[in-house]
């Protein structure tokens, strides 16, 4: 309960500071807040766009959270989701004859597999070679961008486009859209994301394997003493984390674009870190936090059109401030424990 309150406090703090920045820029913060809300929830279509941005954030938030639960920091969701999307698009481009439902199923599995492999690499390097997973995943993000750009430009290039993107996949690959949101590309990936969140919850809380994974995160020596193979659990956690991020490919390629576009992700992987933190690494919290960041992302797009001084990049300011507020959580404890006895004076 206290942690929930702290999350709310962090959001309030981030929003307040961000809105003050818009005030300094010469806008009325109350108006800005109204435009944000209208942009995110003002019409069916806007709600749809908010949910469209929410979907990948659920996957990346879960990805970061599963790694966190095992005591690892997955900064590599951005790379994992790029390769996941590339794999889904590659299956679609290479096997155009496949029919429904084999087509989307195979492409989804490819996205899952590509992400899993890309997550398992830093997991293995950490568990077996002691390389810090944070640095390795950051480096692997750049490697993934380079590799996927190469494939999009030279191997599966879309001959009908000037943009760096792969050939379009067949219609049989596309998963159904949720029609109630007008033209917004909300697809079956959203219910899939919710289902996956539920599965992750069951896995972490109701299975022996999930328990062992969390035990390693709580205390590795204690887990080892209890006979848990910590090395294996670390690799497993990163592999699962990678797979979850890879599923962003389902939402983007099969639910929206129908191809892999270089730089399609507005940093879903990094925002996923914020989502996991704010959601306290619990699936239900992550879904809520993903909705918040999705709304923020969509809402600030509206700010770009409707105000004079603000660009859509301001969403990054809001997000950054909220993460800072979450990360500085010990501040609250620091203030609380202030009237303490200074042992030096005794």
């Amino acid at each position: 309960m206290r942690r929930l309150a702290q999350s709310f406090l962090a959001v309030a703090f981030g929003l307040a500071l961000g809105l003050s920045a818009t005030w300094i820029a010469g806008e009325n913060p109350w108006e800005v807040l109204k435009i944000l809300a209208r942009g995110a929830f003002g019409s069916r279509e806007n709600i749809g766009m908010t949910l469209f941005y929410t979907t990948p954030l659920i996957f990346t938030g879960l990805s970061v959270a599963v790694a966190f639960q095992a005591g690892l920091f997955n900064v590599g969701a951005e790379g994992q989701l790029n390769l996941g999307a590339l794999a889904a698009a590659a299956i679609g481009a290479l096997l155009p004859g496949l029919g429904w439902p084999m087509a989307p199923l195979l492409a989804s599995l490819a996205a899952l597999a590509a992400g899993t492999v890309w997550g398992a690499i830093p997991g293995w390097l950490r568990a077996r070679r002691g390389s810090h997973e944070v640095i390795v995943t950051i480096m692997l993000n750049f490697v993934a961008v380079g590799l996927s750009t190469y494939v999009a430009l030279y191997v599966l290039k879309n001959p009908e486009s000037q943009n760096p993107e792969t050939r379009p996949i067949g219609l049989a690959y596309m998963i159904p859209r949720l029609g109630v949101f007008g033209d917004a590309p909300v697809s079956a990936a959203l219910p899939l994301a919710l289902l996956v969140a539920a599965i992750v919850w069951v896995f972490l809380r109701r299975t022996a394997l999930g328990y062992e994974l969390r035990a390693v995160g709580q205390s590795e020596p204690a887990a080892r003493a209890a006979g848990i193979d910590a090395t294996k659990m670390r690799i497993l956690a990163m592999a699962i984390a990678g797979g979850l991020a890879g599923l962003v490919g389902v939402a983007e390629v099969l639910g929206n674009a129908g191809k892999f576009k270089v730089e399609f992700s507005p940093q879903y992987g990094f925002i996923g870190i914020a989502v996991a933190l704010l959601g306290r690494n619990e699936p239900i919290g992550i879904v809520a936090a993903a909705l918040l960041f999705g709304a923020l992302h969509q809402g600030t797009r509206e700010l770009d059109f409707s105000t004079e001084h603000i660009t859509s990049e301001v969403s990054l300011v809001f997000q950054g401030l909220i993460i800072l507020a979450v990360s500085a959580e010990p501040v609250t404890n620091w203030f609380r424990s202030k009237p303490r006895i200074n042992t030096d004076e005794l």
Partner: peptide, 12 residues
């Protein structure tokens, strides 16, 4: 976490 947040903040 704080480092990532600083990067995001600067980018925005």
């Amino acid at each position: 976490v704080a480092g990532m947040a600083i990067n995001m903040l600067a980018l925005g």
